[in-house]
Amino acid sequence: MTRYRLEILVKPRPGLLDPQGKAIHHSLNSLGWEGVQDVRVGKAMYVDLDAASESEALEAADAMCRKLLANPVTEDFEVSLVGALEGAGS
């Protein structure tokens, strides 16, 4: 088993109103970044997971997103491998 660190990005689906993103967008504009055209706010989660292989770790993370971490009605997700953690697992 190797311990892998996974990065999971959960993002509001395109077209869904993101009031947080809108408020930040306006704030950036009023701070002088007038070129800012859009802001969307999501979440980043880092999961350390013991698995037999990279593909097993990625598959598990995908299943976690479908079951709990993202709501398919409002959110999309993206899973990526940060890397294997040294000195952990067995």
Partner: peptide, 17 residues
Amino acid sequence: LCEAGLLPGALVRNDSL
């Protein structure tokens, strides 16, 4: 109930924040 799939849709942040 929405999260459990017993009702459709989702309840997200109020538009006023």
